[in-house]
Nucleic acid binder design. Sequence first.
DNA 1: TGTACATCAGTGAACGCGCGTTCACTGATGTAC
DNA 2: TGTACATCAGTGAACGCGCGTTCACTGATGTAC
Lengths: 213, 213
Amino acid sequence: MVVTETMTRERNRRGEGGRLRAEILHAATALLEETGSEQSVTLRAVARTVGISAPSIYAHFPDREAIVDAIIDDAFTDFRDAIAAAIDTEQQPVRRLLAGCSAYLRFAEDRPNRYRILFDRRDLIEDCPPDPDRLALTESRTESFALLVTSVQACLDAGLSTSTDPFGDATAIWTGLHGYATLHARLPSFPWPPEADTLDRIVLGLAHITEEP
Amino acid sequence: MVVTETMTRERNRRGEGGRLRAEILHAATALLEETGSEQSVTLRAVARTVGISAPSIYAHFPDREAIVDAIIDDAFTDFRDAIAAAIDTEQQPVRRLLAGCSAYLRFAEDRPNRYRILFDRRDLIEDCPPDPDRLALTESRTESFALLVTSVQACLDAGLSTSTDPFGDATAIWTGLHGYATLHARLPSFPWPPEADTLDRIVLGLAHITEEP
DNA sequence: TGTACATCAGTGAACGCGCGTTCACTGATGTAC
DNA sequence: TGTACATCAGTGAACGCGCGTTCACTGATGTAC
């Protein structure tokens, strides 16, 4: 007997309707990561993947946009956690900084489309009024960046950097990492230098690190 | 009398049908630059803007994709020309390099959506067979990058850089510029340092320039 | 223990929309005689 | 100079598609008595 997608799914028991929300998010994330395009997260495609009818989604999300927002929210949490975890594997400040940046690039390389959506939205382009629903998302972004600033500051505090502007240096590192991550994903056939070289260049050069770890 | 878009346009005279091609491209470019999304370049939207019927486009482009390709091709030519022109305004090697990089950022800032499409396509992700129609496009990309490599090499030749790897340094500068350009456009409310500082950081730091111009 | 009933999780049909593309066509423009 | 005709630059209607969203509904599940 051939088991199709639709046959697999059983209706949730009473009180467990909320489980569908997670299934929807999971399916939508898979779609987005496969295609790399937010446009491919359609209610119908998501419903097809989950094995439900499209209108069922409205019990859990007010509209299509809300699903995409939720995906980005999740992705940012993952991103921040991955970097934080990597930093925590090291003690020495320069090593911690490098580990965090390395995790940044690894995240972008392992799941390029997941990384892509993090900074792809037009959220902050228009000076929109502070939207409470989006505040958590903004904070999650801020936190990822704060990890970087803190790591640079730690090098400075330990006397391992001649930086006079840790925030500016962190910003420079961020743009360097972002540029490498996005171009590397877009143009894989370009003769890129090894990731370790890039990391050294960006981190040690831009953060004014004086001593090798 | 109210003159509407559609009333404005007159049919081209015989032999001048080719002019419509330019009008289509112009309209499509405007659409892409306004919205920043390739998706908004639809045959119908383009036709509406030009003031023709949608099927008329088929006399000049085989399909929708061909229009977008043509836009990117044009954008790349503009991009390369802007950088080349800026470099040529200076004599001293370091100044030339800085001028080129500055033009890079200015292009990205002035026409963010035009810049965006340059590296946004998935062209090279799959190892597609060498497509002769796309070769010019690829060359135009290569040329833009070559300008950068040459500029770094010139600094080295003049003894103004301690670079041991001009190609790698040019790559690092490129990723730095790209990262700054894209993030700056995406998150304008972030406390970015002045562009000049960023340029100095990226160019002087990453290209191992020893002497200020 | 049995049964009527409220609730919950989800369905199926339908709406209007814009899309890419096709097809047969029209009517002005230039040209051959 | 006049006219028949080929050509060129488009048009308008239609196709099937997938989409977001709405609406009235169904049928299994648990609960009150």
